[in-house]
Amino acid sequence: MNIMSLPLSEQAILLFAGMVLFTSFSLLAQPRIVAAIRMFAWQGVLLSIVTVMVAVDTGLHHLYISALLTLLMKAIFIPWLLHRLVHKMEFQREQDILHHPVLVLLAGGVLVIFCYSIALPIERLGNSVTQPIIALSMAMVMLAMLMLITRHKAVSQVIAFMAMENGLFFAAVSATHGMPMVVELGIAFDVFVAAIIFGVFFFHIKDSFDSLDVDHLSSLSESDQ
C-alpha cells in the first residue's frame, strides 16, 4: 500500500499519526515540567483529531465519543489539573534532571525501529489505512516507558504514565477501531481517579521531602539517623 494511492483524507490520518509520535519524542526530550504538560495536552488534541478522522473515514460513530472523551480528559482536564498542582506547589520553573538527553533520544529512535519490526506481521493481516499506525502506537507506549524510567520528578513520571495510556488508546483505535464503550468509559474513569490520587501523592511527597524528586523515596529514613 503506497501513500500515493490513498485519498487525501487517509494521507492526513497518517500525517497526524506521525505528529502524535513526534509529540512523544518531544515529551521525552523536554526537561521543563510546565512545557512537558503543555506538550502532553497537544498530544491529547492530536490524538482526538486522529480519532475523529478515523471515525469519518470508517463511518464508525462510537469513535466520535472516544475522541470527545480523549479531548476532555487528556487534552483539557488532566493538563489543567497538573498545571494547577504545579502552580500550587510553586514548581513553575522546575526542571527535571535529564542525564544524557541525546542518548535517550537515540534510544527512542531504536525503540521505534524495534516496534516496527514487531508490528510488521500484524500489519500484514489487514489492509486498512490504520494498520501502519499500530507500529507507531506501540512505539508511543515504549517511548513513554523510556520517559518513565529516565525521569526523577514525580510530575514528569505521571505525565509519562498518562502518555503511555495515550499510546494504548492509539493502539486500540488503529488496530480494532476502538474498544467497546464499557471498557473505554472504565479506562476514562480510571485515568480520572488516578490523576486525582496522583495529585494527593504529590502533596505528600512534597511535604515529606520538600521536593518532587522520587529518588528521595528510595532511601530509608532509619539509615539517616
Binding site: 500500500m1 503506497n2 499519526a17 526530550a29 537515540l106 521505534v112 516496527y116 501502519p132
Partner: peptide
Amino acid sequence: TLSLLGLLSYIILEVGS
C-alpha cells in the same frame, strides 16, 4: 531525531508492507 523520524515514517507509514 526529526530527520530520523522522517526516514522511519517513510518506511513505516508510506511504503507499506
